[in-house]
């Protein structure tokens, strides 16, 4: 546990200092934090991942839930094939996934463009500024939908079968069963998956960082807060300010993640 506590404490410590031309490394109190909160670039990145969070996470978890219900329903031919096939992208490194999709989007190899030609549709420029966030969202969805499907599927498997039979005796149809038995059964797993997705989204780095070389004009060095912190530290040598940005980002993440967790727990008790 020291492994986590030590860097965290050091981050907090660093964030209170500043390298000055005159006087060297001095204690500046909350100056770095004040600067971070007023920093337009940081705020723009934060809004960007928030937008991403509000769209990508529900889409991904919705797809994962539908897939899990379908695989569990017993009405699918070869469910094992779907289970493992949809999961496979999880084993692909984010770097490789981003490179692949980046090439597919782009005009050099442009599978997307080729499919557009086949269908006689003009495909939008997925690496352009208006589509970039959606394109990254697609890469992340592709990587994790199968993983989340498996978590939800594992939860569905714990439902005792007598429950379904009892429900059928009472005349419940498929949708009624899904709504009244299956959804409550996956609740806690769904909350867990949501919290992990929120944490992952705030940390968004690999995909935009890799795709930056494919669309350098679109993805700036402060595209996501994490990229901003990275570039501040390793391209700008502003270690102290970068630490403050990272601590603020960590704080926001923890608050949002806990809020979701507590809200869902209250709902459960309120029933």
């Amino acid at each position: 546990m020291i492994g986590i506590a030590a860097p965290l404490g050091y981050a907090a410590y660093l964030s209170f200092f500043q390298d000055r031309m005159i006087g060297g490394n001095v204690f500046v109190g909350f100056d770095n934090y004040r600067r971070a909160l007023g920093d337009e670039l940081f705020r723009a990145g934060l809004w960007r991942v928030l937008l991403f969070l509000l769209v990508q996470v529900p889409v991904m978890l919705g797809l994962a839930l539908v897939a899990a219900l379908a695989v569990d329903s017993g009405r699918l031919r070869k469910p094992g094939l779907f289970r493992i096939g949809i999961f496979v992208p999880y084993a692909v490194p984010a770097v490789v996934a981003s490179l692949m999709w980046g090439y597919l989007y782009g005009d050099r190899f442009g599978l997307v463009g080729q499919i557009g030609d086949l269908l006689h549709v003009d495909m939008p420029d997925f690496l352009g500024s208006s589509w970039m966030l959606a394109s990254i969202g697609n890469v992340v969805t592709w990587e994790y939908v199968g993983y989340n499907m498996l978590i939800l599927y594992a939860a569905l498997r714990t439902v005792p079968h007598e429950l379904y039979e009892a429900a059928e005796m009472d005349g419940a149809g498929e949708f009624r069963k899904a709504w009244s038995i299956k959804l409550p059964a996956v609740r806690s797993a769904l909350v867990l998956a949501t919290v992990f997705s929120i944490i992952g989204t705030f940390q968004l780095f690999n995909e935009p960082n890799v795709m930056q070389s494919l669309a350098p004009g679109v993805i700036s060095t402060s595209y996501t807060p994490n990229m901003y912190a990275y570039n501040l530290a390793f391209n700008g040598q502003q270690f102290n300010y970068s630490a403050a940005v990272a601590v603020v980002l960590g704080g926001v993440t923890a608050i949002v993640a806990y809020a979701v967790q507590i809200r869902s727990m209250r709902k459960e008790q309120g029933k």
Partner: peptide, 13 residues
């Protein structure tokens, strides 16, 4: 719940 990011720079240093 702690994002790895918050730890990256201090880990490096």
């Amino acid at each position: 719940a702690i994002p790895g990011t918050a730890l990256a720079v201090p880990t490096y240093l």
